[in-house]
Write a protein that binds this DNA or RNA. Structure first.
Length: 816
RNA sequence: GCGGAUGUGGUGAAAUUGGUAUACACGCCAGACUUAGGAUCUGGUGCCGCAAGGUGUGGAGGUUCAAGUCCUCUCAUCCGCACCA
């Protein structure tokens, strides 16, 4: 009974393929489970993070299939994106060829790991069929006003030569290549995600319990809702005249209306329209202009290093006191938050304080601690009592916010306002390997949508990818077309879509029956049946980007009438990273472990088992070579020991009372493992403890030799372990149980009934002895037995309290 | 700075409601088999101690008959966001 992973694994992989074992049924009366892992980018080879991701989802999928559920466990590839183009530039390959070659290779790796994906539903988002429906949705969204084009200040990555969404800027750098981004004024398409800001925020409540808290918080912070007061600051006559009466006022937003009387200057973003006007009309000295220009071109990280500013030598009037307040330009004021202008209260804001100190601006305190005086050594940012604040003097600063907003509203000089950090999602990219945006620029008609019957607008294959400029724009003929509205010569849009658009609806596409793939994206009936995703598994790195966009698309699709629910993913499991030597596996660190090598040396089952056993799925996983060998050893033992099993078609009936102590114990351990397995697959997801339970049961089986107990044990254990080490379990099951045991198992209660119980006896909480008592022993007897067992501890002491915790322990409290 | 986590043997980690801390595995030690072992099997293994015993879940307090678990304070590490007005 030699265990040969290679032979067994090949055999069953072929069997599953031939028998189409993992295709979901189209019988929509059955109970369903939709198990989904975040689909991979076809980078070329699987890494251990992938193996972990799909080992988890495969365990869920196989378990629920055993339970008789109709399981959808699909796989696809998020196949558009920059790396394909970068590879093209580097190797002279074509992005398409590179991508599809990689997909073929990675599929082989997936099936060599025994993952139970639906093969019929495999797809890639760069497939023209996928592009076709995506473009159709884009047109729907444009018609609904949810997609628009405008000129704006954008995040530009000088290395990748493309625009990035705010979500793709990480610490001021490109999320892919780490190049500091710069702001650039360009035309760009936007999704109106801000229209859904409130709903995206409020619906996070619906996800509580199903999603990790951390992800919910990250999304909440990203949306960044804050309530406050917005009002206009009016220029005095002199300043207004200086601005040629072009501007009378500008708008500011504050979350601290209670500090209104402390305003001592105001600051505009360098990109603010008033600043731009003053520069363009030479209303500022040259050195001031050059300082502002410098601020504008500084990357956002450098801009954070030190506060700087210049005075514009104009003034506004305080809305309540009418006093004159100087207007500055400051580098810390962001054009894309609020209105790009702030009122500054140095006495009660750290940032305003620093700036005021640096430029020697006045500091007016208006809030003091309840029990003392305010000091001007630093900003006082806590709640306190208002003073120097006119009719609001004496109020609690926190509570006064309501009164002050009310005053502004009643006097029509400002209003309560909500602001969001969330910005509209900029989706156009100046790159080749993406879905073309289906619009046409016509001299007469302007921006025109393509007709749906002309979709897909496919990419031309004969392109030169040089890394300079946009290949679609450089292509000699592709962009020339006829206007869909008037028929005249027109120019096709050469921007392509952000790849996050594809991943925002792929989970819906998987619901579609492949036989209808040509004619529809998905049907209402299919969506209704399969959605929402019961278990969604992926990395935490998508906490904001993909998971926010997918939620947004779901809500848009609902409003377009395609789906009838609000949230796509019922339960989200964010797996931890795979580490080696304490660091994330990466090529640059040279600490990667190649899945193919592990499969070749130990087999797929060993790789899967180690990954699920070494740590709970949400935690980081430290790769450990001897740990892998340990898992391999277990599988070998599990396989070899199956020689003790008798062939049977159904689970043996066993007379429990007639068994020896060891046999009873083995049965108990087996059924304990079953109870734990059900709990793990349904509630806890801690596969490591489930596997430990199976190991304990194996150890217990090993010290007895009743073949019925062996058979029953294996009937159950190979069923529990099938989601983890499927090849080995199918081999054992087909050999002894005709594959009948790979199904839901029933827990028998009698194996848990014990003749006697072992209780710990503790004195003042410290365990001193063990006693065996009958199941129905009276407390009185238990206490007297307990006292006997710890006699020597009781000499010269008085027992002041006796506690019996049923089935656990006895605690004697003594004194003296 | 704000937010979220995590601290348990030499290592990865268990302990579902406060109730016998360290399950399971790795490693290590000893033994068996063996020409050999980086194979397999058996036994041992928190720390101090010959032992009796003491001590032990980052640290300091507290509640309780009983605390890894609850409360207060504190330290460390990791992750996310960050001049957001």
């Amino acid at each position: 009974m030699e265990y040969s992973a290679q032979t067994i694994e090949k055999k069953w992989q072929e069997y599953w393929k031939q028998n189409k074992s993992f295709e979901p049924s189209e019988d929509f009366t059955k109970e369903k489970k939709y198990i989904l892992s975040m689909f991979p980018f076809p980078s070329g080879r699987l890494h251990m993070g992938h193996v972990r991701n799909y080992s988890i989802s495969d365990a869920f999928a196989r378990y629920h299939r055993q339970q008789g559920k109709n399981v959808l466990h699909p796989i696809g590839f998020d196949s558009f994106g920059m790396p394909a183009e970068n590879a093209a530039i580097k190797n002279g390959s074509h992005p398409k060829g590179w991508t599809y070659d990689n997909i073929d290779y990675m599929k082989k790796e997936f099936y060599a790991l025994g993952f139970s994906f639906s093969r019929e539903r495999e797809m890639a988002t760069s497939d023209e069929l996928y592009t076709k429906f995506e473009q159709s949705f884009i047109i729907d969204m444009f018609e609904k006003g949810l997609l628009y084009r405008k000129k704006g200040l954008l995040n530009w990555c000088p290395h990748d030569q493309t625009v990035l969404a705010n979500e793709q800027v990480v610490e001021g750098c490109c999320w892919r290549c780490d190049t500091p981004i710069v702001k650039k004024d360009m035309n760009q398409y936007y999704f109106k995600i801000t229209q859904y800001g409130d709903e995206l925020l409020n619906d996070l409540k619906k996800l509580e319990g199903g999603w990790p808290k951390q992800v919910l918080t990250m999304q909440e912070n990203w949306i960044g809702k804050s309530n406050g007061l917005a009002f206009d600051l009016f220029f005095d006559e002199e300043s207004s005249a200086k601005l040629n009466n072009t501007f009378k006022s500008f708008d500011v937003f504050t979350t601290r209306p209670d500090t209104i009387y402390g305003v001592s200057y105001t600051a505009l973003a360098p990109e603010h329209e008033i600043v731009t006007y003053m520069i363009e009309n030479s209303l500022l000295p040259d050195d001031v202009i050059s300082q502002i220009k410098k601020m504008k071109t500084t990357s956002s990280i450098d801009r954070q290093k030190e506060k700087s500013g210049v005075p514009l030598k104009i003034e506004v009037l305080h809305p309540l006191t009418g006093k004159k307040i100087p207007v500055w330009v400051a580098n810390f004021v962001l054009m894309d938050y609020g209105s790009g202008a702030v009122m500054a209260v140095p006495a009660h804001d750290d940032r305003d304080f620093d700036f005021a100190k640096k430029y020697d601006l006045p500091i007016h305190a208006v809030i003091k601690p309840f029990d003392g005086e305010v000091s001007l050594d630093s900003a006082f940012t806590e709640v306190g009592e208002l003073f120097n604040s006119g009719e609001f003097d004496g109020l609690n600063s926190k509570k006064s916010q309501y009164n002050i907003i009310k005053y502004f509203e009643e006097n029509n000089i400002g209003k309560k306002t909500t602001n969001y950090k969330l910005k509209d999602w900029g989706v156009s990219r100046q790159r080749y390997w993406g879905a073309p945006i289906p619009f046409v620029h016509c001299d007469d008609c302007g921006l025109v949508m393509e007709k749906k019957e002309n979709l897909p607008i496919a990419l031309p294959e004969d392109v030169e990818i040089t890394g300079e400029g946009n290949p679609l724009d450089n292509h000699p003929t592709w962009k020339h077309c006829k206007c869909p509205a008037c028929g005249k010569d027109a120019i096709r849009e050469t921007d392509t879509m952000d790849t996050f658009v594809e991943s925002s609806w792929y989970f819906l596409r998987f619901c579609a029956s492949p036989k209808n793939w040509e004619k529809e994206a998905f049907s209402q009936e299919q969506i209704k049946y399969w959605m929402g995703v019961d278990h969604y598994i992926g990395g935490i790195e998508h906490a904001i980007l993909h998971l926010l966009y997918a939620r947004f698309f779901t809500k848009v699709f609902r409003d377009l009438g395609y789906v009838d629910f609000d949230e796509p993913f019922d339960k989200l499991l964010t797996q931890g990273m795979v580490l080696k030597d304490g660091a994330k596996m990466s090529k640059s660190k040279g600490n990667t472990v190649d899945p193919d090598a592990i499969i070749e040396k130990f087999g797929a089952d060993t790789a899967r088992m180690f990954i699920l056993f070494a740590a709970p799925p949400t935690q980081e996983l430290e790769w450990n070579d001897s740990g892998v060998e340990g898992s391999h050893r277990f599988i070998k033992r599990f396989f070899t020991n199956s020689g003790n099993v008798l062939k049977t078609d159904k689970i043996p009936k066993i007379d429990h009372a007639s068994l020896s102590k060891e046999e009873k114990f083995a049965r108990k351990k087996v059924y304990e493992a079953l109870v734990r397995a059900n709990d793990v697959y349904n509630e806890r997801y801690t596969f490591n403890t489930m596997i430990a339970g199976v190991m304990e049961a194996m150890n217990a089986l090993n010290v007895q030799n009743n073949s019925d107990v062996w058979s029953e044990g294996y009937w159950i254990l190979s069923s529990i372990m099938e989601p983890v080490i499927p090849h080995t379990c199918w081999e054992i099951s087909s050999k002894y149980f005709s594959l009948n045991n790979l199904s839901s198992q029933t827990v028998i209660d009698e194996v848990f009934v014990e003749d006697s119980i072992s209780l710990g006896v503790s004195i003042n909480g410290k365990v001193r002895a063990q006693i065996e008592v009958a199941l129905d022993e009276t407390n009185e007897n238990i206490i007297s037995m307990a006292k006997q067992s710890v006699e020597k501890w009781l000499e010269d002491k008085t027992i002041i309290k006796e506690i019996v915790v049923p089935k656990k322990l006895v605690n004697l409290v003594i004194k003296g």
